[in-house]
Design a protein around this nucleic acid. Sequence first.
RNA 1: GCCCAGAUGGCGGAAUGGUAUACGCGCCAGUCUUAGGAACUGGUGGGAGAAAUCCCGUGGAGGUUCGAGUCCUCUUCUGGGCACCA
Length: 860
Amino acid sequence: MEENAKYNPNEIEAKWQKFWLEKGISLIDKDDVTKEKFYILDMFPYPSGAGLHMGHTESYTASDAVYRYKKLQGFNVLHPQGFDAFGLPAENYAIKTGISPVETTKINIINYIRQMQSLGFAYDFSEQAVTCDPEYYKWTQWIFGEFFKQGLVYKKTSKTNWCPSCQTVIANEQVVDGKCERCGTEIEQKEVPSWFFKITDFAEELINGLDNVDWPEYTKKNQKNWIGKSEGVTVKFQIMPSPVRSTGHPLPSTGEDECIEVFTTRVDTIFGCTYVVLAPENELVSVLKEQCENKDEIEKYIEQAKNKTELNRMEAKEKTGVELKGVRAINPFNDENVPVYIADYVLASYGTGAVMAVPVHDERDWEFADNHNLPKKGVIIPRPIKSGLLIGDEIDNVDESYEHFDNYANKKKDNIRKGIEIFVEDGTVIDSGEFNKLNSDEAREKMAVWLEEKKLGKKIVNYRLRDWSISRQRYWGCPIPIVYSPDGEAHLVPEEHLPWKLPMDVDFVPTGISPLAKSAELKKRTEEIFGAGWTAEYDTMDTFVDSSWYFLRYPDAHNDQEFCSKERLKKWLPVDVYIGGAEHTYMHLLFARFFVKAMHRIGILDFDEPFLKLRHQGMVLDKEGKKMSKSKGNVINPDDMVAKFGADSVRTYMLFATPLEDAVMWNENNIVGVRRFLEKVWKLQYKITNYKLQITNKIQNPNDQNKKLVSLINKTIKKVGEDIENFRFNTAVSQLMILVNEMEKQTEIVAADYEKLLLLLASFAPHIAEEIFQKVLGHEESIFLQKWPEFEEALTKDETINLVLQVNGKVRDMVSVGADIAEEEAKKIALVSEKIQKHIGGKEVKKIIFVPGKLVNIVI
RNA sequence: GCCCAGAUGGCGGAAUGGUAUACGCGCCAGUCUUAGGAACUGGUGGGAGAAAUCCCGUGGAGGUUCGAGUCCUCUUCUGGGCACCA
């Protein structure tokens, strides 16, 4: 070993990457029963032409660190990677250049794998999941088939979001700000036939399952909000002819069933209802308008509403609407008749497509009432509060109870009652007959019972979640395995014909018709198998379908009999840790959970949550904290960073800069810190007492001089392990820095200690650890086949501590004492301290607090 | 508007209710060097002071506590998400 051999990352990194590959260090025996399994999963990337971005780099570094740590701990760790390879960008590129997506995808995947290996990510690439590979999508189609057989798939024509640029339908969940998530074009409304997955069937399970997984709380909350459960009641408002009806003709007879059924979560406010609103699309409107004197006006409004996209309706500043003049509705609770409106702020798709409007207790109704000069009436008032206690329940007369409170509360109550002030919270019910004095929640319960007894309504649960539309009029996706008989009936493509392959003879240019419709190969194949006149489904699947089950494939990716063997499924699933971006808080995670729950219900899986533990990585921003984007020209390429600083430095900096879930500002000036740290680790090799020293886990004759080091090593082993378990990589790295700084101060270090350092470092900076382990310490085996070092709990504790002496909570002195100092002894020491005495200043000591191992606080 | 997350030195950040600012960057001084850089050593929250030392300090205002960056209430600002869901 030359004394002045420099740390040259580019040289050693390439060398060890080759070594690991050749020795198959990252390959695992998936049927090994001798070790406990651990499945750590990354969100697989879309293989774009731009290559891996820094966001991937961060989360894959984190998962790679966990992988290496778990492996050293003796687990059999599955750490797979694949590619979400279907999708629009490849198709758009094909439209532009004429190069087939098959080709570009292949090239991009090779590039991605090269980049991942250059960063030292230890993926087992022998079993990948590549969604555009027929070997993979055969099983996407098979699962679709199972869902189909179980009635979890259906086809319907509906008003859907149409992207004029992509020439395709997209799901509600994929509309961002009313624009296409992928291309940014404004979405239009269009009637398109589409296949749906019945995800709404699983709404309740999708909410409940969240209780059993270790996910960030905000992710769970977001999933729940997305599903949007709301409990309420339906109420039937009987329709009656308007007393102001001017045509003179009698109304067509309205049977008892001729009702407007509204949905509300706030039935406690129903005595304040001053009008009823129907969505323009509500079926009743077409009947009711016939009896209205302003039929033309109504029809015009319906027409307008139809042409508006959902976005326009939502964005409209003013709440528009038209009264159905000639119709009134009777509030079953107080027999009042109120006017009926149609307005597009009411959505046909939610609830019953009709609402009762209570302006004083709902902001939207308030606004609409203002615009149309409708009356307002308040029936819920804030609960009287006295001395912090709710006393509303104890009071017989609500008015009287207010006399005890200040004018503000009194005035507020009056304003609400008169309809001058809005109040949307729960409170106490007034002016509501037999329901007076109840709290909102009690009133809701009693009113629901009242409705159900009289058969005027019932409790129902509503979800915001809608079924998942999966049809796409695109080429580069998984073909939907459906064929149509000449009479137009849909049939599942039988399993023996799977994979139902994507034809190759296709013109990509979008015309609004699915590209597959133009394939002669597909037509020929369909007719040969099924008979003349049969046609194939021309739509392909949403790529979110492909990514909803890929984690089930990894353990057995080459299996052509099953999507995964029963044994491997049982051994490996569910995923222990899943790391990926917070942008998938809604869609991908919800869809993947739906798939697993549906497969569980069918009996294909014996677990019903895919990801036991989930962690998100933050965004990688430029050094000014701005998002990286092509247009800003601030995109950083991982290749350049690896070339400049070395993979180990890039990896370690990624983890050190900030907690995993926080945004990292990529500042090249700061990487020098971890680079210096690695240089220090490198130079420590020249302090080893004897390169050939036998390695043992025992401490070599600890003497007073290295006691501190021994303790520090034990502490570091403990902390780095705990930090990795808890995804606190930043503090793990800083602890290693502290250890290295201490080792540097030693005139010599023993090889055993150095080796421990390397093992702790290996998860973050694998190349330098392997280099020193083999080349300096002379091992002939990879460091990743070793064991995580052990520590002794007793040695992690300091023998002496700095006992903090406080007066009234302020630090006044500090003395070095034994860590196990007793209370009496500590108090005695505190009281004899000159500084403490000075601050006591002869005053009476009221109390002395002692915190073992920490401090004494004297209270005067 | 609603929901979620956050606010700590010049900067990234650390801190089971118990020494606020670990670790790193930057900066200052020194050693070395023809010089620059690199490397190494020491210093580095603000204020007063020759010093000992004292006072103030975790967005703001209150509160709980012997003791609050940490817990509670209100508030301001920033970031992210959702958007008429009755």
